[in-house]
Simulated scan of single mutants.
Amino acid sequence: MEPVYGTVIQAARLVWRVQGLKFTITGVENLPVTGGAVIAINHTSYFDFTFAGLPAYKQHRGRKVRFMAKKEVFDSKVSGPIMRSLRHIPVDRDSGAQSFSEACQRLKEGELVGVYPEATISRSFEIKEFKSGAARMAIAADVPIIPHIIWGAQRIWTKGHPRKMWRPKVPISITVGEPIYPTLPAAELTALLHSRMQHLLERAQDAYGPHPHGEFWVPHRLGGGAPTLAEANRMDLEEATQKAQAKAARRDERSAPGDPPE
């Protein structure tokens, strides 16, 4: 029994009802009833993780997903205790060996581990280039990868746009793909996962309904106002460069000698 996890889920459901969200979930039969699996999720919103665990929880009597999340979330005095009580997995992006090892152990113990192969939110709302972590974990733990596509969450809160938390009343689509078994080397398995998730994304978009021309949450490919994948990659690179420079400046300040005595 995990009373904290159950309480958090019920609280989330209450928030969703108040917000008027409308869920469409397909492909739940692709989730394993027992045993470990890597839950690979596309990343378009700050709320993706709250929706990604819903298919397993609803379909299989409360199966829970342990999400891999950046260490800073665990360092927070507010979110840290909650994340640890839910047994999610902290990721230090400068040194990921420990989190990789912990995730593999959880998978071998029969847990579902949620990962974002894109690592960061896709500003274009297209599928970005993948990191190989999901594939390497599946191979190391000998478990399948279950692709998940979430569509519509970017309308509530995403990078570079204001939050629309109060009664957004938007439809949220969650599509669960067929298991991908770790029978290929990591690079090839990653490429296969990317291809499958691209196909699932396009299928989810086709079924979602109208994508109004020029809207910020609609991909450029569908006539929307989102940047192209290439433009979004350039924005990500600029942001990463700025963060690296700021981090280096802070490090230099800490290592600088004190002012000389007068």
Rank of each mutant, 00 (worst) to 15 (best):
R167Q: 13
P168K: 03
P168N: 12
P168S: 11
P168E: 09
K169M: 10
K169H: 11
K169Q: 15
K169T: 15
K169Y: 10
V170M: 08
V170L: 10
P171D: 06
P171V: 09
P171I: 05
I172S: 12
S173A: 15
S173D: 04
I174S: 05
I174T: 08
T175Y: 04
V176P: 13
G177Q: 07
G177R: 11
E178H: 14
P179F: 11
Y181G: 09
Y181I: 10
P182S: 07
P182W: 01
P182C: 04
T183C: 06
T183R: 06
T183G: 09
T183I: 12
T183V: 13
L184Q: 11
L184G: 08
A186L: 12
A187S: 13
E188P: 15
E188R: 04
E188G: 12
L189Y: 10
L189T: 14
T190M: 12
T190Q: 13
A191I: 07
A191P: 03
A191T: 14
L192Q: 15
L193A: 07
L193T: 09
H194N: 04
H194V: 08
H194K: 15
S195K: 15
S195G: 14
Q198C: 14
Q198N: 11
Q198K: 13
L200H: 04
L200V: 08
L200S: 06
L201W: 06
L201H: 06
L201Q: 09
E202P: 03
R203P: 00
A204V: 13
A204C: 11
Q205K: 13
A207E: 13
A207M: 12
A207W: 02
Y208H: 14
G209M: 12
G209F: 15
P210F: 09
H211F: 09
H211T: 12
H211N: 07
H211V: 04
P212G: 07
P212A: 08
P212V: 06
H213Q: 14
G214W: 02
G214F: 05
E215T: 00
F216M: 02
F216Q: 01
V218K: 00
P219W: 01
H220N: 01
H220G: 01
H220P: 01
R221D: 03
R221P: 03
R221C: 01
L222A: 07
L222I: 01
L222S: 06
G223Q: 06
G224C: 01
G224R: 00
G225N: 02
G225W: 04
A226L: 00
A226G: 07
P227I: 02
P227D: 00
P227G: 02
P227V: 00
T228D: 04
T228P: 09
T228F: 06
T228V: 06
T228Q: 02
L229R: 05
A230R: 13
E231H: 08
A232K: 02
R234L: 14
M235H: 08
M235T: 08
D236F: 01
D236R: 14
D236W: 02
L237F: 09
L237D: 11
L237C: 10
L237M: 11
L237W: 15
